[in-house]
């Protein structure tokens, strides 16, 4: 019996295209899973119970708002009346990356067509790292957008910082930032990087990343899904309006 020669290339071609349509269209509910949706107050919400139950202090009953930078998406607040998924499956408005306000004008002219990204881990649980790495798998395929990973800050345009800033990594983070050529972008990815997340009371947490180096874009999540990180990158490169639509 003649056996088909096992050639990787043919197998690769046979599998077809898996890649997401984002950012040409809104992401699907597979790409932004329920667990990545932020808590939303309903009419029957009990703000003070929410604040008491929240392990990271993300819920502010005085201002009646939820600080997504602190939220670890644990859903303990569902008992206080917060909802997460409206059940429609639509992910319009589900993306949450935001600018910090120090983002330079003209980013689109400089980074719009080519963006080299480096990731630095300053004390994460590894989940954010894995989600960043996932951006290069066939489902998200970063390179189709002209974005590439690099492993030296000397080649990097953008720095993705993940994890709760550890005392052992403060110097390394600053050194990495210093080594990047200007102009440069910094993305603070995940609750730990933005606010310390669940670890904000732990001994191994120094400060939010934004206190150590200037941050341009924050991507909330625990961990944010790859599409949400991608949104952050596009936003940093000036390729998205803040509403999440392609510019």
């Amino acid at each position: 019996m003649w056996d088909m020669p096992k050639i990787w290339v043919f197998r690769g071609l046979k599998k077809g295209i898996l890649t997401t349509a984002y950012p040409k269209s809104q992401p699907t509910s597979e790409e932004v899973p329920t667990a990545s949706l932020p808590p939303r107050p309903t009419d029957a919400v009990d703000w003070s119970a929410g604040e008491r139950g929240c392990p990271t202090g993300a819920i502010d009953s005085g201002g009646k708002r939820v600080d997504l930078g602190r939220c670890v998406y644990c859903r303990l607040c569902s008992s206080a009346g917060f909802t997460f998924d409206d059940g429609s499956g639509s992910r319009a408005g589900a993306l949450q990356a935001g600018l910090t306000g120090r983002h330079a004008a003209g980013a689109r002219r400089i980074f719009g067509r080519s963006l080299h990204v480096m990731m630095i881990d300053v004390g994460s649980c590894n989940a954010c790292n894995l989600e960043v790495l996932n951006l290069s798998n066939p489902y998200y395929d970063l390179s189709r957008l002209g974005i590439a990973f690099t492993n030296s800050p000397k080649h990097a345009d953008a720095l993705i910082v993940v994890g709760a800033l550890n005392p052992a990594m403060v110097d390394a983070l600053k050194m990495t930032y210093e080594s990047m050529p200007e102009p440069k972008l910094v993305l603070s990815v995940g609750a730990c990087a933005i606010s310390g997340g669940i670890f904000r009371s732990a001994e191994g947490f120094v400060s939010p990343v934004g206190d150590a180096i200037p941050v341009d874009v924050v991507v909330p999540g625990c961990p944010p899904s790859p599409v949400q990180i991608l949104e952050g990158l596009l936003l940093a490169a000036g390729r998205l309006k803040e509403t999440g639509a392609m510019r």
Partner: peptide, 11 residues
């Protein structure tokens, strides 16, 4: 090691 020790056991 310990570049990312958060100290779970004490936290």
């Amino acid at each position: 090691l310990n570049f990312k020790k958060r100290g779970i056991e004490r936290a």
